[in-house]
Every structure is written in C-alpha cells, then in structure tokens.
C-alpha cells in the first residue's frame, strides 16, 4: 500500500539532503548501530561502589523532595504504615499485584483496599520499582500485569518499594535492566519518576502536588550486603 504523504515526506528529506534512498550497506550499518546501542557520555555521578550508589540514590531522591526510609526486608509493611500514620494519611491502600508486595498487610497495620489498578479516589498507592537510579534519585517503573501505570499517577500519596540490589548507577544501567526484563522491547509505559509531581506555572513559584501525587515515599529494602545501611 502506498501512502502519498509518507512518500512525499521521505522523498522531501532525501531531496533536501541531495541524495536518493540510502545504499543497502549504509542502511545495514545504521541497523547494526540500532541493534547494539553504545553509551555516549556516562557521568561520574552514575558510577561508584555499591554502597556509594545506594547512598547517592537516597541523597538525590531527597533532593527531589521524595522521602526515603531504609528498612530490613521483613519491615516493609510496618514502614509503610508508619509513614502513613506520621503524615496523617489513611491506612487503606491500593497495592500493585506484584508478588513481592504480598505480605504488606501481614502486620495488621494496613488495610489493602484492592490489588492492581487504583480507583480515581484511592488516596494511597503502593508499587514496586524495577530499579532505582543513583544518578538522579529516580525510580524506574515498568508497566505490566504486576505494575499498573495509573498507580504511579492517581493516588495522592505514592509509596514505592525498591530493593537496594536494584539500585543502579545511571540511565545506561536502567536500559540494561529494562532489556533484561523485557527482551522483546519495552513494556507499554516506562516511567522514570524523580520526586512528587510539581509545577511552577503560577508566577514561577514551585509547588508540589500538581496533577500527580502530592508526596512520594520510597521504601528502600536493604537486601544488598555490599551496601549496608549506615
């Protein structure tokens, strides 16, 4: 099927570049580049020892107005409950279907409202990150049956569990994690989340809590012996 609009744009590009369609060997070389992507400039803040990366992840997430609690693997549920209590938030939570979040309410301190996609008025959402990026204190959230993307955006309070082992250096390590978890291409929605939502659109005054969550709390699970909590 020919598409005249498509042809006119592509031929316009070729005419402007004063050439015809690219020769087969050039196209093959470009495709090799697409198949084996190479990092360009990886900044020093994206590199370091395990302990340094986890520590930097915490510092940068807090600089972006997120809060972080480092907890032992067994203490995730109580940590979530403690945060909600301290911030005067309801303890009824919408939780992603991720099996790693199964025992969340075992302590009896939380009520799981639902597993999976949140309703528009769920106040608190709890999800699990694929990775954390030390470079900028960013959470990498990949959509899938266990991880609804609307959970990252709809609730007023967004709580994300991330494992210290999953805290990596920078964007390049994020791509590697993503390619390992999804070898056939990225899932529908990949969110890089750095702090709670914000706007500066009224007189350039920074305000947290625009359309997305008003607060972002990260529960960092200390499961990496090479990066012990201080």
């Amino acid at each position: 099927m020919t598409d005249p609009a498509r042809d006119s744009i592509l031929n316009g590009i070729r005419a402007a570049l004063r050439r015809g369609p690219l020769p087969a060997e050039t196209r093959a070389a470009l495709d090799r580049g697409l198949a084996a992507p190479a990092p360009a400039v990886v900044p020093a803040i994206a590199r370091g020892s395990r302990a340094a990366l986890v520590a930097r992840f915490v510092v940068n997430a807090e600089a972006a107005a997120a809060t972080v609690a480092r907890v032992a693997p067994a203490a995730v549920g109580p940590a979530v409950a403690a945060y909600l209590r301290d911030h005067n938030q309801p303890t009824r939570v919408a939780v992603a279907a991720d099996a790693r979040l199964d025992g969340l309410a075992d302590s009896g301190l939380l009520t799981v409202e639902r597993r999976g996609t949140p309703a528009g008025d769920d106040a608190v959402g709890v999800g699990h990150a694929l990775a954390g990026l030390a470079e900028t204190g960013t959470l990498l959230m990949a959509s899938g049956p266990d991880s609804p993307s609307t959970l990252n955006m709809l609730p007023d309070t967004h709580i994300v569990v991330v494992r210290a082992r999953d805290v990596v250096g920078g964007l390049e390590d994020g791509w590697a994690r993503l390619r390992t978890a999804h070898p056939d291409g990225p899932p529908r929605t990949v969110h890089f989340i750095t702090g709670p939502s914000r706007t500066g659109d009224i007189e350039q005054t920074l305000q947290l809590g625009a359309h997305g969550p008003r607060r972002l709390h990260i529960v960092l699970v200390d499961d990496d012996p090479d990066a012990p909590a201080a």
Partner: peptide
C-alpha cells in the same frame, strides 16, 4: 530548562496496552 537534574516524570510509551496489562 528548569535546572532539575531530571524532570519529575520521563515517560516512554510503546504501543497500546498489552492484553495482560491492567491499564493504559
């Protein structure tokens, strides 16, 4: 742009929701 090391949300969208996806 704003002097942030990274904006709050950087979102990569690939195709429509997959059959097994709960939303999108």
């Amino acid at each position: 742009a704003t002097g942030q090391p990274m904006s709050t949300y950087t979102t990569f969208s690939t195709g429509p929701r997959r059959p097994e996806d709960p939303d999108g």
